[in-house]
């Protein structure tokens, strides 16, 4: 690839203008995400259960987006660190600067037992890529306690879980995950 900073024709019209921009932001972790992160550090996954429709959101949002009512610590419920695969993608890492992945790997959406929505972008471990399937039962492989950092905006599980391994149980029937394949 040619250097985009240079014009193709010296003396010709300027076609590209490199302009590096850096913006600084303060990231504030909201109180709901903070409580979720503290539980993760403790090896627990928690959710908020809507008092109206009873759906459980993990990670918790601090509200039910369907009923549009706020939820607080009093609506906190435990969620299991086991669940099933409802969709997955095999990624082939391209070797750009900073890329730490070297081999194909799989990220999955996982429906945890006790939650009504999936947790996305979870790494699958200990299974050949061509054996991954919908309904596969998995269990969390927790990171060592001192390495469990929650996402600072409350998305996903941060670095608390290294990935998910098959439990060896029979696959869940399609009816159990049909509404969660995306």
């Amino acid at each position: 690839m040619t250097d985009p900073a240079k014009t193709e024709d010296e003396g010709g019209p300027i076609r590209f203008m490199p302009q590096l921009i850096s913006l600084d932001y303060t990231v504030r972790t909201n109180p709901v995400a903070e409580a979720f992160g503290a539980a993760l550090a403790d090896g627990r996954i928690t959710g908020h259960q809507c008092p109206n429709c009873h759906l459980v959101y993990a990670p918790p949002k601090g509200f039910c987006p369907i009923c549009t009512i706020e939820t607080t610590a009093e609506h906190e419920v435990p969620v299991a660190d086991t669940g099933m695969v409802t969709s997955w993608t095999v990624l082939t890492p391209i070797q750009y600067t900073g890329q730490r992945e070297r081999h194909d790997y799989a990220l999955a959406s996982i429906l945890l037992e006790g939650a009504d929505g999936t947790v996305g972008q979870q790494r699958l471990l200990e299974i050949p890529l061509d054996e991954i399937r919908l309904g596969l039962k998995v269990a969390a492989v927790w990171a060592p306690p001192n390495q469990r950092e929650a996402d600072d905006r409350g998305y996903g599980l941060g670095t608390a879980v290294d990935g998910w391994r098959p439990t060896g149980e029979p696959d869940a029937p399609a009816a159990d995950y049909r509404e969660h394949t995306l």
Binding site: R28, T29, N30, P31, V32, A33, K61, G62, F63, T68, I69, E70, R153, G154
Partner: peptide, 16 residues
Amino acid sequence: VDIAASETQMLLPVIN
């Protein structure tokens, strides 16, 4: 001023 809530959490009670 300098809120800790997420933008969505801030909006919810206002829209309601």
